[in-house]
Simulated scan of single mutants.
Amino acid sequence: MDYLYFRDADGNKYGYPVEVSKDFVEKKGLIELTPSEVEDLLNPKPKATAESLKQQVTEKRWLVETGGITLQSGEVIATGIDDQNRITSVVTNAERAGLQEVDFKSATGWSRIRIEQVQAIAAAVAMHVQACFSAERMHHEAIDAIDVQAIGRRVAAREASGGPAQHVPPL
């Protein structure tokens, strides 16, 4: 059986068989849902949980962390995990080898720079990475402070007491 979906002035949603009369719909003051509203109604997105929110935060941190940085000089430094490791390796090995300058390839091209400049780049990358993790931790702690289950209980109680509800026929 096919259904048409409507909402009333309070936002409550209803599904009626296609055969329902237009007079009935008009008397009830119902407004037909748009195709995207019907899609959202029939295929709701999963409810956010603390863990799903934290996962989103972690994914965002990774994107920012590995997205690179731009130095004051305008030089763009890649900050992917391999890039971070390579910069650290250059600093350590150049010092051991007694090198004063190294050929350095940034995202914007080649240059010959002093080891002190590589150390400054390494420090900038380390500060960037640490700022990303600090922001992620702050967001995780904020999410932990939210009692997601209590919010869910309040929403369920509101719906049980006649608040906005979803009146959708079984498929």
Results as ranks from 00 to 15, higher is better:
residue 133 F to H: 13
residue 4 L to W: 10
residue 140 H to V: 14
residue 99 L to V: 03
residue 90 V to P: 02
residue 81 I to Y: 10
residue 4 L to F: 04
residue 26 E to P: 00
residue 155 V to T: 11
residue 132 C to W: 00
residue 66 T to P: 00
residue 147 D to C: 11
residue 38 V to M: 10
residue 75 E to V: 12
residue 23 D to R: 14
residue 85 N to V: 00
residue 7 R to W: 02
residue 53 L to E: 08
residue 116 E to L: 12
residue 66 T to Q: 11
residue 127 M to G: 12
residue 19 E to W: 06
residue 25 V to A: 03
residue 91 V to M: 02
residue 35 P to H: 04
residue 24 F to N: 11
residue 52 S to Q: 01
residue 142 A to L: 09
residue 48 A to G: 04
residue 20 V to W: 00
residue 97 A to R: 06
residue 114 R to C: 06
residue 119 Q to L: 03
residue 34 T to M: 03
residue 139 H to E: 13
residue 59 E to R: 08
residue 120 A to T: 10
residue 151 I to F: 14
residue 54 K to R: 13
residue 133 F to V: 08
residue 85 N to Q: 11
residue 2 D to A: 09
residue 43 N to W: 06
residue 4 L to T: 10
residue 131 A to D: 11
residue 60 K to A: 12
residue 112 R to W: 01
residue 99 L to H: 04
residue 15 G to F: 00
residue 160 A to S: 12
residue 119 Q to Y: 02
residue 99 L to R: 09
residue 38 V to Y: 09
residue 98 G to K: 08
residue 12 N to S: 00
residue 155 V to R: 14
residue 114 R to T: 10
residue 154 R to N: 05
residue 81 I to G: 08
residue 129 V to R: 05
residue 66 T to N: 13
residue 63 L to S: 11
residue 19 E to S: 11
residue 139 H to C: 08
residue 6 F to W: 01
residue 125 V to G: 06
residue 118 V to S: 02
residue 98 G to E: 08
residue 40 D to H: 04
residue 116 E to S: 14
residue 99 L to S: 09
residue 63 L to P: 00
residue 104 F to Y: 15
residue 98 G to M: 08
residue 18 V to N: 13
residue 138 M to I: 06
residue 101 E to S: 06
residue 9 A to V: 14
residue 1 M to Y: 04
residue 87 I to T: 07
residue 33 L to F: 00
residue 27 K to R: 14
residue 18 V to F: 12
residue 66 T to A: 09
residue 51 E to K: 14
residue 140 H to R: 14
residue 21 S to W: 04
residue 67 G to L: 07
